[in-house]
Design a protein around this nucleic acid. Structure first.
Lengths: 229, 229
DNA sequence: TCAAAAGTGTTAAAAATACACCCATGG
DNA sequence: CCATGGGTGTATTTTTAACACTTTTGA
C-alpha cells in the first residue's frame, strides 16, 4: 500500500432500524444501552464497523450480536454525519433499514445480557444520540417505499390472508383502504399465489391463505413491471 | 470527552455526481486525477472529510475546490463501503448527487490546475475506483426521482420554454413524450408561472417563457400535494 | 412564401373510486 | 340462530393516451 494518506479520521458506525408488525402496531427494535454515553437510554442497535467487513455485514453482525436477529430484507437508509451527533467525538453512522417477521423474532427480543424490546413506533421512549432522527427517516422511507415496492410481505408470515395484507398496508400508510378495491388491485397483479389452505382457529368463516410469489415478481420486474399499490 | 473508544478507523471521503444538461445530452462532471492511485484517470470530484465539517459541507467544499461549482440542489446519494474499493486501504465514501444549470457552470469547467470536464453520461471514460458504480447509482436515482419530484428545473435556466422542459424530461427518462399531454399535465399543476416574455433570437415563432414557482410548490407540498409527471 | 416550431381540443380506453349485499363458519 | 368477518359486482368519475391541424415568425 504505497499511496496511504493520513488524515485524522472520524469513527464509523452502523445503526439499524428494524421494523416488525404485530396485531396492534408497527414496531421498532430498540436496545437499552449498557455503557456511557447515554447509559440506560434506549437506542437503535448498532456499533463500530470493523476494518475488513462491508457496511451491510457490519449492520448484520451487530443485529445478530445485540438481538439475535437476521433480517431477510435489509437496505442502506442514510448516513448521518453531523459533527456533534456523538459526544465521544466525530462519529459518522451509516444507518440501515430492515424488516422482519415478528413471529420469527419475538422470542429473541432479549438476548446476550443486553435488554432488547419492540416498541410501537408511535410510542417510543427518548432515544440516545440522534436516533430519533434516524428512526423518523426510516419510518418515512418505509411509508414511501411500501407503495411502490413489495416490501410489506417481509413483515407478514409466509402465508397470509388478504385481510392481514390489507391491515399491514393500513398500519404502515396510516389510512384505511377499501376492501374490494384493495383485493381487486392486488389479485390483478397475479403475484399472490392462492393456496389450498385457510386460516385456522378462528371463530368465523376461515379466510383463504396466499403466498407472495417472489420469483415471479423478480421476472416481471426485469420485464419492466412496476409494483404499485 | 471521557467516553472515547479507540478502534482502527476507515478513512472517510465524499464523492459528488454532478449532472448538467445541454442541447445534446445529460452530462456529468469529471476530474482528471493528478496523483496516484489512478493518476491520469477520470474520476468523480471528491476528497477526504474534515473532522469539523458535516458530510454535505465536505461535498460542497470539494466541489468548490475542484471545479468552482456551487450547486443549488445537492442531496446524499448512497454510501459506498466495500472493503476493497480503494487500493490505499479501507476508505468509505459518502456519495452526493447534485444538479446544476450548465449555463452557469460551463466556464468554470477547468480550474485550479486540475482538469475538469463535462461528459455525456452515455459516453464516459473508464473511471477510477468504483466511480462507475457510483455514477450508475446516481443516474438511476435521477431517472427515478425526476418523475415524482420537481428536480428537473434545477437543470434548466430560470426561464424556460415548455419545449425545453419537455426535452429535459425526454433526455432524462430516455423516452418521447406527447407534446399536448405533457403541456396539459404540467400546466394543470399550476406550478409554472407564465411570463410576459418569449425566447429571443430564434428563426421561427418565439415560444413563451415560464418560471417554476418554487414557493408555491413548497406550500402545496406541505398541504399533501404530490408532484408527478 | 416557405420552413420551423408554437400552440391548441377532442375522443376513446383504462384505471380509480365509491358503494351494498350475500355467504360460510363457530359458538 | 346470530355474530363475525369473508367474499363478490357494478356504475360513476377521473385519468391517461392517442391523435392532426392551424398559427406565428423570421429568413
Amino acid at each position: 500500500m504505497s499511496y496511504t494518506y493520513d488524515y485524522p479520521r472520524p469513527s464509523l458506525t452502523v445503526d439499524c432500524v428494524v421494523f416488525g408488525l404485530d396485531d396492534e402496531d408497527l414496531k421498532v427494535l430498540l436496545i437499552k444501552r449498557g455503557v456511557e454515553p447515554f447509559q440506560g437510554r434506549w437506542a437503535l442497535p448498532g456499533g463500530f464497523v470493523h476494518m475488513d467487513e462491508s457496511l451491510e455485514d457490519a449492520a448484520r453482525r451487530e443485529l445478530q450480536e445485540e438481538a439475535g436477529i437476521r433480517p431477510n430484507l435489509m437496505e442502506q437508509l442514510y448516513t448521518f454525519g453531523a459533527p456533534e451527533r456523538d459526544p465521544r467525538g466525530r462519529v459518522v453512522s451509516v444507518a440501515y433499514f430492515a424488516l422482519v417477521k415478528l413471529s420469527d423474532h419475538r422470542v429473541h427480543a432479549a438476548t446476550d445480557a443486553r435488554e432488547a424490546a419492540w416498541f410501537s413506533v408511535y410510542d417510543v421512549p427518548r432515544l440516545a444520540f440522534d436516533h430519533a432522527d434516524i428512526l423518523a427517516t426510516a419510518h418515512q422511507r418505509l411509508k414511501g417505499k411500501v407503495r411502490y415496492q413489495p416490501l410489506g410481505f417481509e413483515l407478514l408470515p409466509p402465508k397470509f390472508t388478504l385481510t392481514q395484507l390489507q391491515r399491514m398496508y393500513e398500519k404502515i400508510l396510516e389510512r384505511e383502504l377499501d376492501k374490494r378495491n384493495f383485493r381487486k388491485k392486488l389479485l390483478a397483479m397475479e403475484l399472490l399465489e392462492e393456496l389450498d389452505e385457510v386460516e385456522q382457529d378462528v371463530s368465523h368463516r376461515a379466510a383463504r391463505l396466499y403466498r407472495f410469489d417472489h420469483k415471479k415478481y423478480k421476472q416481471l420486474e426485469k420485464a419492466g413491471f412496476n409494483f404499485e399499490l
